[in-house]
Write a protein that binds this DNA or RNA. Sequence first.
DNA 1: CATCTGACGACCG
DNA 2: GCGGTCGCCAGAT
Length: 114
Amino acid sequence: MSWNPVYSFVQRIPRGKVLTYGALAKALRLPGGARTAGRAMAATPSGKGIPWHRVIGDRGKILIRGPHALLQRKLLESEGVAIVEFRVDLKRHLWQPKKTGKSKSAAPRKRGRN
DNA sequence: CATCTGACGACCG
DNA sequence: GCGGTCGCCAGAT
């Protein structure tokens, strides 16, 4: 599986904004849903300028385990994204790919299983 | 070829 | 709000 589409999409995320794995998976119609988005990010080639740190968990939580979590937090903070206890305020920083920005709910709430 | 393992997210108690 | 379980699927062992 080529993750190219995923990487391209991630690169479009504006500085200071973030996207959730679920939203990413949904936007790209990834089979397997959010989990697949997660794998794609895990396989992100470093040194390509891909802002992998702008992809976070559904509730704005940094889900990475290990030293990279600190790096991600640091990178986000350096972009102006406020983080509290490894959580991002989605209402403020969630990027909405298609909509013009007048939507109702900033925080994604999906129903039913993937 | 058989199994295990996750950078997920939803549901249930 | 917290922790356990389940569905999904690509790589690693």
